Amino acid sequence: MARRSPDKLLIGGLAVLYALLYLYAIGDLDIGRAGWSGQALDWQWQRLWASRGPWLFEAVAMLELGVLVLLISPANLVLAGLLTLLLALNLHGALALRANAQCSLSQGAASSAGLWPALVAGGACCAPSLLLVLGIPGLGAFVGLFAWLLPLSLLLLVLSRCWQRRRGAPRVLRLL
């Protein structure tokens, strides 16, 4: 059996951590009492798209997995998976470009190029709460911007990956 490279383990670990943190930040993953159970709502198609905020969707089921409580919202899971995949591809590209030394940017800038869009996506769910805690006056002026953070982060992650491909990053990430 072949050993996994440290880069693949790093990328996989960071991708899983990012997905879990994203789901926790939007409220779909939480810590509850220890138990194993599940509940589901009666099936209705319109519940899949019921919104609780910009780019946040209502759950259709709940799973208790030991101390973790996961709200199953297919749309939120798809968004989390897409962000995680793009983050992993950007990390892979940044590490590959650094290893091949084909990037004209400094190593610090090249390695963080794919991380900034992911941080913007994290701000889509956490920034309103942070602004409330900090008590910044004029919060209403910023509220309209939060709906744009997730689409902007997706766009930036895709553009970052395209830029990496033009610079010579590998096409796909081999997981095995």
Score class of each variant (00 low, 15 high):
residue 8 K to Q: 12
residue 10 L to T: 14
residue 10 L to N: 05
residue 12 G to K: 09
residue 12 G to Q: 12
residue 14 L to W: 00
residue 14 L to T: 12
residue 16 V to E: 05
residue 17 L to V: 10
residue 17 L to W: 08
residue 18 Y to Q: 02
residue 18 Y to L: 05
residue 18 Y to I: 01
residue 19 A to D: 01
residue 20 L to M: 12
residue 21 L to A: 08
residue 22 Y to D: 06
residue 22 Y to H: 09
residue 23 L to W: 00
residue 29 L to F: 06
residue 31 I to N: 00
residue 34 A to F: 11
residue 34 A to D: 12
residue 34 A to W: 12
residue 34 A to H: 08
residue 35 G to N: 12
residue 35 G to F: 00
residue 36 W to E: 14
residue 36 W to S: 09
residue 39 Q to S: 10
residue 43 W to V: 15
residue 44 Q to W: 05
residue 44 Q to A: 10
residue 45 W to C: 02
residue 45 W to Q: 11
residue 46 Q to K: 08
residue 46 Q to C: 02
residue 46 Q to H: 06
residue 47 R to A: 00
residue 47 R to M: 01
residue 48 L to P: 11
residue 48 L to R: 07
residue 48 L to D: 08
residue 49 W to E: 07
residue 52 R to M: 09
residue 52 R to F: 04
residue 53 G to C: 04
residue 54 P to F: 00
residue 55 W to N: 10
residue 55 W to E: 07
residue 60 V to Q: 14
residue 61 A to L: 07
residue 62 M to N: 12
residue 64 E to G: 10
residue 65 L to C: 06
residue 65 L to K: 10
residue 66 G to E: 10
residue 67 V to P: 10
residue 68 L to H: 10
residue 69 V to L: 05
residue 69 V to E: 15
residue 70 L to N: 13
residue 71 L to G: 09
residue 72 I to A: 07
residue 73 S to I: 01
residue 73 S to E: 05
residue 74 P to L: 04
residue 76 N to K: 11
residue 77 L to T: 11
residue 78 V to K: 00
residue 80 A to S: 08
residue 81 G to P: 10
residue 81 G to N: 07
residue 82 L to D: 03
residue 83 L to D: 04
residue 85 L to A: 14
residue 85 L to C: 10
residue 86 L to W: 13
residue 87 L to A: 03
residue 88 A to M: 09
residue 88 A to Q: 11
residue 89 L to C: 12
residue 89 L to M: 14
residue 91 L to Y: 00
residue 91 L to D: 02
residue 94 A to I: 04
residue 95 L to K: 00
residue 95 L to Q: 02
residue 95 L to G: 01
residue 96 A to W: 05
residue 96 A to I: 13
residue 97 L to V: 14
residue 98 R to I: 01
residue 98 R to G: 03
residue 98 R to K: 12
residue 102 Q to F: 04
residue 104 S to C: 02
residue 105 L to F: 02
residue 105 L to T: 09
residue 106 S to A: 08
residue 106 S to T: 15
residue 108 G to A: 15
residue 108 G to N: 13
residue 109 A to Y: 13
residue 110 A to I: 03
residue 111 S to W: 04
residue 112 S to Y: 04
residue 118 A to N: 03
residue 119 L to R: 07
residue 120 V to C: 11
residue 120 V to K: 03
residue 120 V to A: 06
residue 122 G to Q: 07
residue 123 G to I: 02
residue 124 A to Y: 04
residue 125 C to E: 10
residue 125 C to A: 13
residue 126 C to G: 00
residue 126 C to K: 01
residue 128 P to H: 11
residue 128 P to C: 06
residue 130 L to S: 06
residue 131 L to R: 13
residue 132 L to E: 15
residue 135 G to R: 05
